[in-house]
Each structure stands twice: as C-alpha cells, then as structure tokens.
C-alpha cells in the first residue's frame, strides 16, 4: 500500500471511532503529536507534585496532611501510567525526562505559579484539577487506545482531587476572617491561570485542527473553557467568594456565562519561562534527577550482579 492509501485507511478507522493501538500503522505526525502531548501531560503530573509538596510538611492537621499526601502520590502514579502510555509509541522514559530537563519538552504552565498559602491547596484542587478534568474527560474518548485507557483511570482519581480541594476552601469559607481572606486571595490568584490552562483561543491554536481531525483532541479549547466557567461559577457562589472578573455575567441568550478577556501576554510570558516559578520548578526536577543518579546506578549495578550470580 502507498502512504496515501495507508493514511486514508487510518483516517477511515478514526472516522469510524475505532481505537488505534500501539502496533497499528499510524502517520508519523500522529505518533509525534501523541508523544508530545502525552509526555507533556506526564511531566505536568510530576512537576505538579512540587507546589503541593511545598505544603505537605505544613498541612494544618493530620487528616489534611494524609489526604494531601495521598493526592500527591496519585499524581506520581498518573505520571507513571502516562510515561508508560508514551513508551508504547516507541520512546524511552529517560529520553522524555531529558527533554523536560533541557527545556525542549513543556509541562503545564500552571505549575509555574507559586503555592504560597494553605488555601492554595484548595484552589489548586478545585480550579486547577477542575480545569484538568474538563480536558481529561474529553480525552477518555481520544483515538489512541493506551492514552484513552490511561485517562479513564486518571479521571476517577482526579474527581476525588477536585472534591478535596473544594472541601478545603469550603472549610476556609466558613472560618474566621483570616481564613476567608486567604481563601479569596487564593481564588484571585488561581482563577485566570486556570482559564489559561485550556490553551489559546481556537483561532490561535496551532495544533488544534489536525488533532481534531485525528480525534486526539475531541473538544476545542474555547468550548472546554466555557464548560469550566459554567461549572465553576455556581460552585464559587456556594463558597460565598468572588471570581476576579468584572465582566463575568450570565448570558441568557447564549445559555452560558460571559467572561473577560484573558491576559495572553502573561500566558505567553509564563510559557516562555518568565513565570514566577519556572526556574525553581525545573531546577528542582533537575536536581532531584542528578542527586538520584548514584541511586539509579546502584540499583542497576546490583541487579546486574544478581543476574550474573544466578546465571
């Protein structure tokens, strides 16, 4: 078969909602897009452990400490499934991690914002995980089988993460003035970056059209962002807090909330490495990797010794 025929057949399978599996033929660009997207997602899980890890040792009580630890552990687990899903496409985890450390691969920009108060653990769970779930639920139907299956598993845990985040804010919103203040402040800081998580507007999204055609992406950036806003506004009302957007208003004609324009210059700057924590996050990951090199080497050397002894 010629490449054109293979590509046509591939697209027919996609159009018929068949899942593509690791050993199936796929266009090189499809493979590359998936490797980029899945590894970026895996890196985001791993880098995402850092802002929350920042509060584990200061969590305000034993129950919250245990829940936060369990949540971070889930994120490490998500990182592992996703690296494995990426490996089915013929790349090694080590080379993906090297790309993260060299800056060639990206991770979600949201983790370049600092977690400066306990309320941030709530806002990250509620808003950041909430925005991530919007994306991930759509990805459960993505065309690449191993990715779709990893997402199904991840979504189950993410919805628990979102609830625990909201629950933290709910406690704060019912607390004293200091607690309410930290709650509102965290919402103010995390709201806009959470909206940015859905990526550029559809008109400016460079990879979107092809990804939609291949059904890697099932729902557009703007549509997901709108769903997120519509879901979040009533939840914020229950908290008795305010979202930091004067233009936020129910539009009965559209049946959706209208909201203000995102500051895309901030988005682009954080993406370029100018966010408040880009340098720290990458340095933390890189140092952990370098500091751990002797441990990985020891494990390897020991298992080789074992293998020789039993050979």
């Amino acid at each position: 078969m010629t490449i054109e025929e293979l590509e046509r057949k591939f697209q027919d399978r996609i159009d018929a909602e068949e899942k593509i599996e690791a050993k199936d033929w796929m266009p090189e660009e499809y493979r590359k897009t998936l490797i980029r997207q899945i590894s970026q997602h895996a890196h985001s899980e791993v880098v995402g452990m850092l802002p929350e890890g920042n509060w584990v040792t200061r969590a305000p009580n034993l129950k919250r400490k245990a829940i936060l630890l369990a949540k971070i552990q889930d994120e490490a687990g998500h990182g592992l499934y996703l690296y494995s899903a990426a490996e089915t496409l013929g790349v090694e985890r080590d080379s993906l991690i090297d790309d993260l450390h060299s800056g060639k691969a990206k991770y979600s920009s949201i983790f370049n914002y600092p977690a400066i108060s306990w309320a941030d653990m709530g806002a990250i769970g509620w808003l950041v995980d909430g925005a991530a779930i919007m994306n991930q639920v759509a990805l459960c139907r993505t065309s690449y089988g191993p990715y779709a299956r990893a997402m199904v598993r991840i979504c189950k845990e993410e919805s628990f993460h979102q609830r625990q985040g909201y629950d933290i804010l709910l406690s704060l919103s019912r607390g004293n003035a200091a607690q309410k203040r930290m709650c509102q402040d965290a919402i103010n800081r995390w709201w806009w970056p959470s909206l940015m998580m859905f990526g550029p507007n559809d008109a400016h999204s460079p990879h979107s059209a092809q990804s939609m055609k291949w059904k890697i992406k099932r729902v557009s950036n703007d549509e997901l962002r709108q769903r997120f806003v519509d879901m979040t506004v009533p939840q914020c009302e229950i908290l008795g807090m305010k979202l930091p957007d004067d233009k936020l208003k129910w539009n009965p004609e559209r049946g959706h909330y209208d909201f203000g324009e995102i500051d895309w210059s901030e988005f682009n700057n954080v993406l370029k490495g100018n966010g408040p924590c880009n340098k720290e996050r990458l340095a933390d990951r890189l140092n952990a990797h370098l500091d751990g090199a002797w441990v990985r080497e020891a494990a390897m050397a020991h298992s080789e010794k074992r293998a020789r002894r039993t050979a």
Binding site: L50, E52, A70, I72, Y83, G292, A293, V295
Partner: peptide
C-alpha cells in the same frame, strides 16, 4: 519522609516514600 515528596531519585521511589509517609501518618493518627 514527606520532605522527599517530588524530589525522589526516581518516580517509583518518590511514590514508595510517599507511601511510607502515608502509612506512618495513618498509624500516628
């Protein structure tokens, strides 16, 4: 143990140490 969170020598051991931390906090409670 929880100070290691996000800084382990390899992801699997990051998880293992978080798991130990979690068991110990459960026991402490």
């Amino acid at each position: 143990l929880s100070e290691w969170c996000g800084h382990g020598p390899v992801l699997e051991q990051d998880m293992a140490m978080t798991n130990l931390a979690l068991d110990h906090i459960g026991r402490a409670r």
